[in-house]
Design a protein around this nucleic acid. Structure first.
Lengths: 253, 253
DNA sequence: CGATTCCTTGAGACAGCTCAATTTCGGTGG
DNA sequence: CCACCGAAATTGAGCTGTCTCAAGGAATCG
């Protein structure tokens, strides 16, 4: 029997038919037609991971690809002496694995309990060749990720600690708005899916600096906290003003 | 001796038939068959830019896509107050523009005299749909760029100034080895395509720090300089040892 | 209630930044 | 060929934002 560690019971792990899948219209299968979908249906299988578990190690063979259906995972890289940088944050609908490559270039870690919708790599690659809707969608998603990675480079390379935190919260808000409730212009609630340490690894800071800057934003009235992990943003525009960006947020319409 | 800098007369700008194109096997057309190639041949046209010229501004409409045939260009982003971060370095064979998007998300700047092999965007998109070899190749290239961007995130987020410089030189060496002369294990010569300031914008440093660290590496015997822009690396492995990376360079076989 | 994990806050250290001269180098014209 | 010019690069000195080290506090769980 699988040990349950930190959750009392293992969640029933969202296993639905594709048509009912909560991320049906965001994932790699978003553009598939009913016929194609039933092909995927036959190929797919689910994998579950508990919070803290490693999904793959950097360099490991990876004989599947998949989509995050539930939970949050991270991609990270490490230097010789253990300094760590997160290079990707995988939320529901994000894709894991690279067609055409056998091994992972990153450590992939489940940060909360995670469910993946997987395909064995070889069949998936063949399927891509015959299903332009999938290949095309994957290209589109990769280009989006590339844009995100570059936005991140700007954050890592040029922003101050305060700007980094403000940016991070803003970006989370943007993703949440796409996936879930569209943002009204009132106060917005954002759940941080990461510990302070993970945020630090994400932002190229130390956990102490992350903590200090969150406190600073709070005492400046730009955010308030509900517990440690829930942020309430009374006026998102004011927070965006702290990111240093060239104004165009896109969160609030 | 190949072209450089601000020559009085505009170079005759490499305009060849696809079959003879110097980057035939690296670019987006790499996997095309003769028939497909002649389709491209009819669609393509060349554009030339002088060193320092801007190719597109962030937010500008961009009605073409293209491949760098000659020269070096950069992708960069800027914050409100002018802080700048380079988010991509485009060498020959690299692709510019994003199919399916009308405007550029970055400033694209020619850093030396540049020749692009271009396609108008719409026809290119249609062509992609009917030419899986192009779409597939573009996906592959985008995923490579994504990997590069993530490697860069590690550099920006977690490396010291010295490690950043060592990494930068190492990466340039790797690219040069792929494109040109395969690296023997003797001394390697690497031309820096960037000013110190541009390197700084790339590495998230100031130009003074870049200069200091280059001097430091030199006085430590890890590199030597021929002029300001040419680096000689007597022992690439020793330099790789300074990058902080988890050892796997891939430059020297 | 201890134990553990996560978070906050403080005080001092240091890497890289800022400001400010020089110096070097490639190009140009005499 | 040399003198000169401007851009690029180097070097110095002091400053500051973030890190490091260290000591609690808060929430969760057995």
């Amino acid at each position: 029997m699988t040990s349950q560690s930190k959750s009392l019971m293992s969640e029933p792990a969202v296993e639905t038919e594709c048509v009912e899948c909560p991320i049906r219209h965001q994932a790699v299968c978003a553009r598939c037609e009913p016929g194609e979908l039933s092909t995927l249906e036959q190929m797919k299988y689910y994998r579950n991971y508990e919070a803290g578990q490693t999904i793959v190690w950097n360099g490991d063979e990876m004989n599947f690809v998949g989509t995050v259906v539930r939970g949050v995972a991270t991609l990270s890289q490490t230097l010789q002496d253990g300094r760590k940088q997160m290079v990707g944050l995988l939320l529901p609908s994000d894709f894991i694995g690279r067609p055409g490559r056998r091994t992972s270039a990153y450590d992939v870690t489940a940060i909360s309990d995670v469910t993946l919708c997987c395909f064995r790599r070889k069949p998936f690659e063949q399927m891509m060749a015959t299903t332009p809707n999938v290949a095309e969608r994957l290209l589109h998603m990769s280009l989006d990720e590339l844009d995100a990675a570059r936005e991140w480079m700007l954050i890592l390379g040029r922003k101050t600690a305060r700007e980094k935190i403000a940016s991070f919260i803003t970006i989370l808000g943007r993703r949440a708005a796409i996936l879930g409730v569209p943002a009204r212009s009132g106060p917005i609630t954002i759940d941080l899916p990461l510990t302070r340490e993970a945020m630090a690894d994400y932002l190229g800071l130390t956990l102490e600096t992350v903590s200090r800057q969150i406190s600073a934003l709070r005492s400046d009235g730009l955010i308030s906290l509900d517990g440690k992990r829930r942020v309430i943003v009374p006026d998102i525009r004011r927070l965006i003003g702290e990111t240093g960006d060239d104004m165009d947020g896109g969160l609030v319409a």
